[in-house]
Amino acid sequence: MTDTAAELLRTATRALAPDPAANRFVPLVERGAAPREALARLALEQRWVIPADRRAFQHLAERADPAAAAYFTTLATGEELAAAHLTAFTRACGVTQERARAYVPLPGCQAYPAYVSWLALNASPTDTVLALTANFSAWGGYCARIAEGLRTRYGFTDDACAFFDFFAAPAPDLDGQARAAVQAGLDQGALSTADAHTYGTLLQTYESMFWESLGRPA
């Protein structure tokens, strides 16, 4: 495999990196200034996001060529693992089963998974690999900062922080699968960097909406 795919992924990640000042919620958690109610909303919103993304990734795997299918299958499996970790975080936030069942999600928080579902139905899987990989770089960084803030400012246990630790951890196998999928798309002439950039730009915008919505007073 050449370095073409790896360089394309690096370029996309740099180009689509969000404005560091755009996310005002994560710094609040780092300082311990985010209300616990906002942390509970984060947990409740993720209860909707995780299963939606898992199904979207499964559908993309079914549509994709073998290289991209491996990437999306790994993502879907990861969402299953994340769902198990989310239970501990939700419990640490004091969310009861009754509240979880009655919770009505915020539109601004659910725009991101709704768009991932759109990509699953309409976009080229290979283009989607490129867009998602660029977006995941920012998401992983946010998760690392949240995990640190939860431990140092809120006294959350390792078990309660495991959801964020999971997404913050390096994923060399997934990175390798992303490179293989992008390279296969390049080799087959099935990759549109313009479309991938559009998808990635929208993903970053919807993710910014997620964090902004969380930070608004309930």
Results as ranks from 00 to 15, higher is better:
residue 150 L to M: 08
residue 132 L to R: 13
residue 124 S to L: 03
residue 124 S to Y: 05
residue 151 R to F: 11
residue 127 D to A: 09
residue 178 A to Y: 04
residue 169 A to T: 14
residue 123 A to C: 03
residue 177 Q to L: 12
residue 178 A to G: 04
residue 140 G to H: 09
residue 151 R to E: 14
residue 125 P to H: 07
residue 139 W to I: 11
residue 166 F to A: 06
residue 161 C to M: 08
residue 152 T to G: 02
residue 131 A to D: 04
residue 166 F to M: 07
residue 175 D to L: 07
residue 161 C to R: 03
residue 159 D to W: 05
residue 148 E to T: 09
residue 130 L to V: 00
residue 136 F to I: 11
residue 180 A to E: 12
residue 164 F to E: 12
residue 128 T to P: 07
residue 168 A to F: 08
residue 124 S to D: 11
residue 114 A to K: 10
residue 161 C to K: 00
residue 143 C to P: 05
residue 117 S to Q: 15
residue 147 A to L: 05
residue 137 S to Q: 13
residue 159 D to A: 15
residue 115 Y to W: 09
residue 166 F to E: 06
residue 165 D to I: 09
residue 117 S to I: 08
residue 132 L to V: 13
residue 156 F to T: 03
residue 171 A to H: 15
residue 121 L to S: 14
residue 142 Y to S: 08
residue 154 Y to H: 05
residue 172 P to D: 06
residue 130 L to W: 01
residue 161 C to I: 04
residue 175 D to H: 12
residue 152 T to S: 15
residue 174 L to Y: 06
residue 146 I to A: 08
residue 117 S to V: 11
residue 153 R to W: 09
residue 157 T to Q: 02
residue 141 G to P: 07
residue 146 I to R: 09
residue 117 S to F: 06
residue 147 A to R: 02
residue 147 A to P: 02
residue 134 A to W: 02
residue 152 T to H: 09
residue 175 D to V: 12
residue 135 N to V: 01
residue 174 L to I: 03
residue 138 A to W: 10
residue 177 Q to S: 00
residue 167 F to G: 00
residue 151 R to D: 12
residue 129 V to D: 01
residue 119 L to M: 12
residue 171 A to N: 14
residue 121 L to N: 13
residue 129 V to C: 00
residue 145 R to T: 01
residue 137 S to A: 15
residue 156 F to R: 01
residue 124 S to V: 00
residue 128 T to C: 08
residue 161 C to G: 01
residue 175 D to N: 14
